[in-house]
Simulated assay, not measured.
Amino acid sequence: MEISTMETIETLGTVAFSISGSFAAMQRRLDPFGVLIIAFVTSIGGGTVRDLLLGDTPVAWMRDVNYCLLILLTSLATIFFKTHIKKFKVTLFLFDSAGLGLFTMLGIQKGIMFGLSPGICVALGTITGCFGGVIRDTFLNTIPLIFRKEIYATACILGGVLYFTLKYFNMKEDVANISVIAFIFVFRIVVVRYKLTLPKFGY
């Protein structure tokens, strides 16, 4: 994948997760500083865990301050426009789903850059896509989606499998990337719309 394409995906993913983090924080009525912190950890959490696992340090957001500025500007814009958006929950869900697809693809590509096996690449994609949300939900004192019966990490895993399947059949890189991102986004919407869930264990 070309560097410019990776940067585009990372920028879009950062914006999407920054918006979802901001809305999650505003739902809990945090002050502007709290909103910024939640937006920040949502945007950089998954990528930070991924880079630490790969030994790629300093982690990405420390090497490029533009990502921090992007999160700041996106958060401020979200706070400013909040009065024009009535359905916080729907907006949060849509941007979270978009960020999930974008960051999953980014994590997969990072694994490929390091020459890792497809299975590990899919795992890195899942970590990149999910762990920002895990940290966000933990900070907001809610059970993270990945640990609930709602299908979340499964979407990342299936997206990763789809990517390597498409590459096996020699699909063009950009088409494969867009297909996987779109699949994860649509898959999340479908499973939530029709209330599809994984089995729930417990007493």
Rank of each mutant, 00 (worst) to 15 (best):
T78I: 01
L116F: 12
T142I: 14
F114L: 11
D64G: 08
G133W: 01
L76V: 15
G45H: 04
V134W: 04
S179W: 04
V35H: 00
L162K: 04
D31Y: 09
G55N: 07
K167F: 04
F185H: 02
V161E: 07
T11D: 01
L145E: 06
D96T: 04
M1Q: 09
V90S: 11
I184V: 11
S18M: 03
C156G: 01
A98H: 05
I112T: 12
L116R: 09
G132M: 03
T128D: 04
V161Y: 09
R28N: 11
S20C: 05
F201D: 06
L166M: 11
L30H: 06
T128N: 10
F139T: 06
I37Q: 01
T138Y: 09
R148E: 14
F147W: 10
T42H: 03
Y67H: 08
M26P: 06
M105W: 08
K87M: 11
E2H: 13
A24G: 07
V175N: 14
I127S: 02
F80D: 08
G46V: 04
L100C: 05
I127Q: 02
P32A: 01
L106M: 11
I189D: 00
I143V: 15
I71Y: 03
R50W: 07
A155Y: 03
L53I: 14
V35W: 00
E2G: 13
P199Q: 06
D64Y: 13
A25R: 02
K87F: 12
G132T: 02
I38Q: 01
V59D: 03
K167I: 09
G13V: 07
G129T: 05
F88A: 10
T83D: 13
M62S: 09
R136P: 07
T165F: 11
L94S: 03
M113N: 14
L106G: 07
K87V: 09
F183L: 10
G101M: 03
D174T: 13
T5C: 06
A25Y: 00
L100R: 03
V122Q: 04
T42S: 15
R50Q: 06
R50E: 04
G47R: 03
V41S: 01
G160R: 03
C156V: 01
F139H: 04
K86G: 09
T138A: 14
K89T: 10
I3N: 15
T42Q: 05
